[in-house]
Amino acid sequence: MKCALVTGGSRGIGRAICQKLAIDLGYFVLINYQGNETAALETLHLVEQEGGNGAVLKFDVSDEEAVNTALSNWIGEHPDAVVEVVVNNAGVAKDGLFMWMKKEDWQNVLDVSLNGFFHVTNFFIQKMLRNRYGRIINVVSVSGVKGTAGQVNYSAAKAGVIGATKALAQEVAKRNVTVNAVAPGFIQTDMTAEMDEQELVKLIPANRFGKAEEVADLISFLASKKSGYITGEIININGGIYS
């Protein structure tokens, strides 16, 4: 059974990714969530409605022990499962000016994005190398590429994942394992619902926010066999706001 794991897969971009990987590529999708079980089950229902298969898997990506326990248990119960695709999508934003930033808001954002990438990817990397096949896709942000005022913690976390993407790609390319990152700009999700879309649209050459499905389409391509010669890349998907 060929599987794809999507962290933070219960809502927004994560949900759209789960749907695309299940329907476009036929993967059994492991929908990771931390707290919102209702939303995760809703994502699973949408996947199944479209003829796909999957399961929900609860763990906090920032907690190494929780990651290892949840994934080891699931794989132990499904010995025929091979996880070919890992999408590190889980992230959290705790915005505020740096001069007033609390240490826990700095730490928490780094723990989820950067340490989360380490915990989940590190769990699977040896298996992918042994199988001589794998697709690791990290969801970063325009903030990690150019830096965004009021998001020093988020920008630092995503920039860290960008550096890791480029380095890891070089280590594993010989074994047919690719490592890429996708950097969305303004996308219509719960995370951007509070933003003043009418004002922000003026900054975007494409004159609109992106859709979660558009990000998921790009990730679906990077997760497919068609993308085998693309690795170590950071692909911006932002309507021209930073290119």
Rank of each mutant, 00 (worst) to 15 (best):
A149C: 08
L44Y: 04
V182F: 13
T178Q: 03
V29H: 04
L203H: 10
V145C: 11
L200C: 06
A216M: 09
H119F: 15
V161A: 08
L30K: 03
F209M: 08
V161H: 07
T38R: 15
E37H: 05
Q107T: 14
I235C: 00
I219A: 08
F186Q: 01
I162W: 08
A156G: 09
C18W: 04
D95Q: 10
K2Q: 14
L44M: 04
F221Y: 15
A70Q: 03
G163C: 07
I234L: 05
N115T: 14
L30V: 00
A4E: 01
V177F: 05
V201D: 09
K225A: 09
E84N: 15
E214Q: 14
I241V: 15
H119V: 13
C3V: 07
A81W: 04
A81E: 00
T189N: 09
S141K: 01
R208W: 11
S227E: 04
D95T: 10
I230S: 01
K202M: 10
I31N: 00
A93T: 14
V201F: 13
A183G: 11
V82P: 01
M101D: 05
E37R: 09
H78R: 10
D80V: 04
Y229K: 02
V177L: 03
V86K: 00
V92H: 08
V145P: 05
D111M: 07
A70G: 08
V29M: 04
A39Y: 04
N68C: 12
V61T: 13
K226A: 13
W106E: 06
A183R: 02
K94I: 09
S224C: 12
G144K: 01
N88I: 14
Y33Q: 01
Q49P: 00
N153G: 10
M191E: 06
Q34W: 11
A39C: 08
S220G: 10
D111P: 05
I23S: 07
G52T: 03
D24P: 04
Y242Q: 03
N176I: 07
L114Y: 03
V139G: 01
I230H: 03
G150P: 14
E50T: 01
E194R: 11
E42P: 00
W74A: 06
E77S: 12
G185H: 07
Y133C: 15
E199T: 15
W100E: 08
I187Q: 04
W74D: 08
G12P: 01
K166M: 09
I17A: 03
G116I: 14
G150L: 06
N180I: 11
F221G: 00
V161I: 15
Q34V: 13
E104V: 15
G54E: 06
G150T: 14
K226V: 11
I23T: 07
F117D: 00
F124R: 02
R175F: 14
G26P: 02
V6N: 02
L57P: 11
K2M: 13
A169H: 06
